[in-house]
Every structure is written in structure tokens, then in C-alpha cells.
Nucleic acid binder design. Structure first.
Lengths: 226, 226
DNA sequence: GAGTGCAATAATATCGATTTTTTCGCAAAA
DNA sequence: TTTTGCGAAAAAATCGATATTATTGCACTC
């Protein structure tokens, strides 16, 4: 019998996978602006593949709430807005707290090691490569929750993370964290987590989100006032 | 300009939509058992359509967590299990409580009317048509939350509801509610909701879920012991 | 007799073309 | 001037066929 055929990372990704990652990245970074029509033909040419994998990728993105499907009228990237941002922030705080408590409760050595490693990598990454940094940042936050045993909860947290990241890209340069010491906040969360200090870890994590959230919301307000 | 072209219910559904609803129903009711391979060719013949809408429907179901995709190896219906059931129950309790509080906070006349109507219809439906009853039951519960302003939260609740319903069908005849007065529980929840009595409504709702959960869990245990 | 490698088979993933539906522009009527 | 009703163009949805990839069975070696 084959040994771990499903974990093999060597195989090249399917067209669907490529399309999914490509379109997702374009939406997250804002290269495709909110509300824009996603024409199959355009994406076909841009990504050089048939229509089927494109459609399938867009369908996957619909469930991520990054794309909306209009029956018989194709797809468009999801709209953004202040209310949407606020609800995502609120849900994230609730669900990530649940997940973090579960995660610390089921913590083990492997979890701890991965957490420390991802923290280290994130801290060492220069901030000028935004996409690369955001990737490591996400990995760190997800590793924090990784020992949580509820697959569904983790999926929700993951989805919400991506929905949120979009707003950070939209905020763009304004959000270079220059006014806050984000690094030390992350370190504090990690330390509390490895100490199995659930209350402290949750408190700092939520505070971390609330602050970033308030920052983005202010930005949103001033922009809307233009 | 057209008037409300998107709300028009008269148009016949797309093939994708038909496939989605058909396969979803088969999985929820257990006609397709957990873990079963979903072969495109079989479904093609059964639903009399091409492969594309089938694949698209299955992709939609992946995001509902009712179907799993095995890269390059097709699709299968999601597995069930006691842990899975437990995590869904727990998440539902958390999220529906959030949603119910929000919903009551934003309650208005339309919401109240719809809630009363759906309650009435559910109560009048004879229990022998299980699928029809389950449909009305879901409508009632979703109407309870409908005034909640967070679209994402409602989507999550909806998903979790469907994941849970599967276990009720799996339990089958055993769960005919004969030992409990489910009707009065629903009525009590509705009354508390229309009275805007948030605490009572939440309390009864959660109790309602916990009881049904405990009932199903017992069933699971005795079955696993065979 | 157990394991290995290779073809035959089956199933998936993808493509290109066709069908259906929507959108858009323009002219005719109110 | 605004509405209404075509028809052309564009786009989406779907199909059937092909290319790719996994699975299966069987002969062959050790």
C-alpha cells in the first residue's frame, strides 16, 4: 500500500487550486476591487486555463464570502463596508476566544513548537514585503488556535481571518503599525499561551483585535467622509 | 428598469441549483450514507445532466461541510461521528445565542409576524411527513434569528443547523419526540421572543438544544456499543 | 507465497464548443 | 421626454469529448 499518498506535497497543484489561490489573493489584496464583476472570459485569459476550473474556484470563493454568485448572472467580488467590518470583528473576537481557550486546554509539545517557530519567522520577516508578512502573520495566529479540536470552529476562524485581512489591505499604507508596537503584543500573546495562562492570553488577543479594529474603523470613517 | 429581478421566484432553477438541492437533501436524509463516494457519472445519470453542474454543486456542498473533496480523487459525503456531533452542538449553542440576542435587539413588526406565521405552520404540520416537517422546523428557527443584522453569523447558524439535522435523520424513528413535548418548548421560545424577553428566550432555546443533543448523544453511544 | 511492476480499467479534471440567458442599444409608440 | 419592445451582442451555463490521474488485476520475480 502507498505510504501517505495524501500528504505528498510534491505533486503540482490542480488548475482549480491555482485559480482559487490566484483569485483569492487578487481579492484579498484589493487588486480586484470590491463589487467588481468577475468575468469568466477575462480570468480564463489571465490565468490561461479553461472555464471549468475558473467556475469551480469562484464557487469555492463564494463559500468563503469573498465572492457573490448572482444566479444566471455570474460572479462578483463581495462588497465591503463599515457594518460588514464591524460584524466580522465582533464574530472574530467571540470565536477566536472560544478557539484559543480550547487550544490552550489541549496544548501539547508539537503545538508549542510550531507556535514558537511561526512567531520567530514572523518577527524576522521584513515589513516591506507585505504579502509575505501577512502570510506569516496569519500562520502565527492560526497556530495559536491549532490545538483546538473543533474543526468547524477552526474553519470559521480561518474564514473570518481572511475576510478581515481584506480590510487591512484596503487600508493599505496607513496601516503600517508604525504607531504601535505590534511585535511586543504578539510576543505577549505567545508567552501567555505557552505558559497556559488562558485568561491573560485571551485578554491580550482580544485587546489586540479591538485596537486594530478601532484603528481601521477610524480610517473607514474618515474615508467615508470624503 | 426591471422590478426586483433577483427576487423573482418564477424562473426555473439552474441545473447547478437543482443538483445542489438534490444532493444536499440526499445527504441530509441519509439516502447517501456518510463517507460514501460521490461519483460524477452516477449522479449524472441519476439527475440527468452534464458533469459541470454536478461538480459545481458538489463544490458548494464542500463549503457546507457536507461533502469532502479529495484532491484528484473526487468527492465523498462527509463522515459523521460523536465528536463531530458534540462540536456542532457546542458551536450552535454559542452562535445561536449570539444571534438570538441580536435578533431580539433589532426586532420589528415584520420579524414578529413572520415568526408567528412560521410557528403556526410548523405546529399544524402532521409529523408523518418528516421532510416537510423538518423544513418548517428549520424555517421557524431561522426566523427566530432573522432580525440579527450580521449576515455572516446567520450564515454560520444556517450551516450548523444543516450539519445538525443530518444527525436527526440518522437517528431516524428513534427521534420522534414522543417522550417530550417539543411543541410547548417551541411555543415558549416564541412567546419569550415576542415579549422581547431576551434572557428567557435564550435560556429556553439553549435548553431545547441541550436536551435534544443529550438525547441524540445517548443514541450514538448505544449504537457505537453494538 | 509474498511482494513488485506493469498494463488495463475506471474515474477525475479539464477543455473547446454549443445552448441558453441576460444585457444593451436603438427605434417606435405614448 | 419617457416608456416599451424588439433584435443584436455579450456573457453565463451547460454539454460532450479529451487528457490526466488514480485504481485494479495479473503476471512475474524473489
Amino acid at each position: 500500500m502507498n505510504i501517505q499518498p495524501q500528504i505528498d506535497p510534491g505533486q503540482e497543484p490542480s488548475a482549480t487550486q491555482r485559480a482559487y489561490l490566484a483569485v483569492r489573493q487578487m481579492i484579498l489584496t484589493g487588486e480586484i476591487p470590491p463589487g467588481e464583476k468577475l468575468k469568466i472570459e477575462n480570468l480564463r485569459k489571465k490565468l490561461d486555463m479553461g472555464g471549468s476550473p475558473i467556475r469551480e474556484a469562484l464557487t469555492l470563493l463564494v463559500s468563503d464570502l469573498l465572492v457573490e454568485r448572482l444566479d444566471q448572472r455570474g460572479f462578483r467580488s463581495a462588497e465591503v463596508g463599515r457594518e460588514n467590518f464591524a460584524e466580522i470583528l465582533k464574530l472574530r473576537c467571540h470565536l477566536e476566544e472560544m478557539a484559543l481557550r480550547e487550544s490552550i486546554a489541549h496544548a501539547n509539545q508539537v503545538w508549542e513548537d510550531n507556535l514558537v517557530i511561526s512567531h520567530h519567522r514572523m518577527m524576522r520577516e521584513p515589513r516591506n514585503n507585505v504579502e509575505r508578512f501577512e502570510d506569516l502573520h496569519k500562520t502565527f495566529h492560526m497556530n495559536l488556535l491549532a490545538a483546538c479540536t473543533s474543526k468547524v470552529l477552526l474553519k470559521f476562524c480561518n474564514q473570518l481571518y481572511d475576510l478581515n485581512i481584506r480590510y487591512r489591505y484596503l487600508a493599505g499604507r496607513a496601516l503600517d503599525y508604525s504607531t504601535r508596537d505590534i511585535g511586543s503584543e504578539h510576543t505577549a500573546i505567545m508567552n501567555a499561551a505557552v505558559d497556559r495562562d488562558t485568561e491573560t492570553a485571551c485578554h491580550i488577543l482580544l485587546d489586540h483585535y479591538q485596537r486594530t479594529g478601532a484603528f481601521l474603523e477610524r480610517l473607514f470613517t474618515s474615508e467615508a467622509a470624503e
